[in-house]
Simulated assay, not measured.
Amino acid sequence: MIYPIVAYGDPVLKARAKDIPTDLPAAELQKLIADMYETMYYAHGVGLAAPQIGKSVRLFVIDSAPMVEDDEDDNEPAETGIKRVFINPVMVSETGEEWAFEEGCLSIPGVRERVMRCPDIVLRYEDENRQVHEEAFSGMTARVIQHEYDHLEGVLFTDKISGFKKQLIKGKLTRIAKGEAKADYRLRFAGQRGR
C-alpha cells in the first residue's frame, strides 16, 4: 500500500519515535516494511522514515544507490549504494570532518538546503528479521542514514541550517504547514486524517 507522505507542520514529524516492540507479529512488520519501500519508490525518494507515513516508530528504509550514482567522482573510489531496513537504530558514533550537501525531504516538498554532516557513522540496528547489527557506513549512504535517523529523533533537515537560511525559507515552510504544497505524490497535512 502506498501511504500519503506526512507534510511539514504535522506534530508526528517533531516527536521522538518509539521502539518497535519485540512481540510485534513478523507478518505485520514485513507488511509495514514492504509498504514503506513501495511508498518511498513511488515518491522517488532514497529514504523514508516511519514518522513520514504517520507512524511514530523507530523504523526507516533506504536505497542509497541513486544518491551514490549521482555523486560519483572520477577521482574517488566508487561507493556502492545499499538497500536496507533499519529497526530500532541507535547512533553509536558520527566522525570525520563535516561536509555540506544540498538535502531535500519528501515531507518538505520544494525546499532544498545545504546541510553539514559527518562522513562516517557507526549504527546499531535490527534488520527485518530482528537480528542485531553494528555497522559502519560512510559517504552518501551515511548521509542518507543520518537524515532518516534524524526523523526518528523528531529532527528535520531544516533544523540543521543557519538562522539566516531558516528566515529565507520561513514563508515556504508556513505554506507547506497550511497545506499549500504540491508534489508528484500524495501529501497528508496536519489535521487531515490519513490511512
Rank of each mutant, 00 (worst) to 15 (best):
I2P: 02
Y8T: 03
Y8E: 00
D10Y: 07
P11W: 11
A15F: 14
R16G: 01
I20T: 06
A27W: 11
E28D: 15
K31M: 13
L32C: 08
I33A: 04
M36D: 01
T39D: 06
G45E: 06
P51E: 02
G54E: 06
K55D: 08
S56C: 12
R58L: 01
R58I: 04
R58F: 01
L59Y: 03
I62T: 04
I62L: 12
S64W: 01
A65L: 14
P66S: 10
V68M: 05
D74P: 09
N75V: 14
E76N: 13
P77R: 05
V92D: 07
E97L: 13
E98F: 10
F101W: 12
G104Y: 03
L106C: 07
G110I: 12
V115S: 01
M116R: 15
R124S: 13
R124T: 12
D127L: 08
R130C: 07
V132Q: 09
H133W: 14
F137D: 01
A142P: 00
R143A: 10
R143E: 00
V144C: 12
V144E: 01
Q146D: 10
H147T: 10
H147A: 06
H151D: 03
E153P: 09
T158H: 02
S162L: 08
K166D: 05
G171I: 07
T174I: 14
R175K: 15
R175V: 02
I176S: 03
G179P: 04
E180G: 13
R186V: 12
G191T: 02
G191D: 08
Q192C: 09
R193K: 15
